[in-house]
Nucleic acid binder design. Structure first.
Lengths: 202, 202
DNA sequence: GTCTATACGGCGATAGAC
DNA sequence: GTCTATCGCCGTATAGAC
């Protein structure tokens, strides 16, 4: 019991690092065990399977990062300011956690089986308050009438997809990783502008 | 020799279906052989390795779907009409191959080694003519000055990402697959509008 | 060309000794 | 809790019958 927490943590940390570095599929459990300085069987003692270990890491990562986003979405902020903050914080979060992008992408493709993770992601988007706000502002005539689902999908697409096609953008524009990150930073101003534009009367 | 084309095609088709459905990593060559109704040794006779088979499938998949998109992008169409057509055709294409997005995203994400596939995707986005058109129109004062890379990333994001989060959208809004496809169809008008809006003077 | 049979090393997972 | 030893599956390869 004395060493148990310690060992579990060592496995957790080694796995997190390796998953980030080479992707989940190309990281073997033997490799994790070696890096953690323990034995292969211990992997399975603490986490029943590699899949389970992945779940644990993912859940912790989402929880750690989602709270601020949910808070912003359900805050009493004025609509435009809320959009600006949400985009800003979300892009910052994805910039600092490339692992999150990998994980979400790995899960999305086989979302039929990965119910646990799907629910974790789904809970990230409790949009009821935000939806209401969009409808209310439209009723008041402050913005155009808009479909909240479409608007939220637009927002997520403009925020997240560029990270997914990072390699393509780098290759196409012949830029380095650092330059790509600058490109991403520019989007913190561009994306909210575009979204707010789409709500304006014409 | 008589049956060879046939057998090769059967392997090719079975593998294509399985790769799209479950991803490359979670498809075994024994499974492909079974589905194709042939023997494991034949897999190795026609395609030296699974990786080789994947390359062949991916290249064909991209070629088959990209020609019309490239044609539109490099056509002499007026800018707004070009955007409308590009979005329309792209969304139609992805609607007919809903698994293509997550498949390509998965490939893109570990493309450090997968040079062949990266180049294939990269060629899909020969945007030189389109970039020039954006700059020219801005010079003429017809549209705002805009960063062509950002604009193209915006466009791809709004087109493709909704397919990647299909399960999330269905779950969140409690809708069926058919209703999701209707949602996607609505985007054929919404997305070009948004993009063109972002080019307008304010 | 197509098959059966077999082999290799690596993988995720696990049984059982301590 | 921690270990060794082992299981069955994987991708890949090859030898040899038809």
């Amino acid at each position: 019991m004395a060493k148990s927490r310690n060992t579990e943590q060592k496995i957790f940390d080694a796995a997190t690092e390796l998953f980030l570095e080479k992707g989940v599929d190309r990281t073997s459990v033997r490799e994790i065990a070696t890096k953690a300085g323990i034995n292969l069987a211990l992997m399975n003692y603490y986490f029943r399977s590699k899949e389970n270990l992945f779940d644990a890491i993912f859940t912790q990562l989402v929880k750690k990062n989602s709270e601020e986003l949910i808070r912003i979405l359900n805050s009493e902020l004025e609509l435009e300011e809320k959009i600006r903050q949400y985009v800003y914080v979300y892009i910052d979060m994805l910039s600092e956690n490339p692992l999150l992008v990998s994980f979400v992408m790995a899960i999305l493709h086989r979302s039929r089986e990965r119910i646990t993770e799907m629910k974790a992601i789904s809970n990230l988007y409790a949009t009821d308050q935000f939806t209401k706000q969009l409808i209310d502002e439209a009723k008041k005539g402050n913005i155009r009438r808009t479909d909240p689902t479409h608007f939220f999908v637009d927002m997520l697409s403009l925020i997240a997809f560029p990270f997914a096609i990072k390699m393509l953008v780098m290759d196409k524009n012949n830029i380095t990783e650092e330059e790509f990150m600058l490109f991403i930073q520019e989007r913190k101003a561009r994306v909210p502008e575009m979204l707010i534009d789409s709500l304006r009367h014409r």
